[in-house]
Computed example of a mutant assay.
Amino acid sequence: MIQFDEKSHTYTLDGVELPSVTHICRFLAYDYKSDKPWLAETAARRGTAVHEACALIDYGETPEETPEIAGYLKAYRRFLKDYRPDWELIEHPMGNLEFGYAGTLDRYGTLYDGRSCILDIKTGQLHGPSLRAQLTAYQELMPPWHSTPDYLYALKLSKDGTYELTEVRYDLELLKICLFMNQAVERKNHA
Rank of each mutant, 00 (worst) to 15 (best):
S147Y: 05
Y30W: 06
E6M: 01
E17V: 12
L73E: 01
L119A: 09
T42K: 15
A184H: 02
E140S: 15
L13Q: 11
N189D: 11
G103L: 03
A184R: 02
T136W: 10
Y32F: 11
E173A: 07
Q139G: 09
D171T: 00
Y83C: 05
R77E: 04
D58Y: 12
Y30S: 15
G15Q: 05
V168K: 10
R84A: 13
H190M: 13
K33C: 02
P144M: 06
Q134H: 09
Y108A: 06
A154P: 13
T22S: 03
V168T: 07
M94L: 14
W87C: 04
N189I: 06
Y151F: 09
L174I: 02
G60K: 03
E98N: 05
L157I: 13
D58G: 06
I69K: 04
A44V: 00
H146K: 09
T48K: 14
C25Y: 00
V16C: 14
A75Q: 08
G124N: 01
F79W: 10
I121P: 00
D58I: 06
G114F: 15
I90A: 00
T10W: 08
A102L: 09
L56W: 10
R45C: 11
D86Q: 08
A70F: 02
R84F: 05
L141Q: 04
L165G: 07
Q134Y: 13
E61T: 00
L73D: 03
P129A: 05
Q3L: 08
E98S: 02
R46P: 00
T48R: 13
K156S: 02
Y163W: 02
M1G: 12
A137E: 03
P85F: 00
S34I: 02
D58L: 13
E17R: 06
R169V: 03
E52A: 14
E64T: 10
L174E: 07
N96C: 14
M142C: 08
D82P: 10
D82K: 03
Y72A: 04
D160M: 00
A55H: 09
K176A: 10
R45A: 11
A75H: 10
K176D: 14
F79H: 03
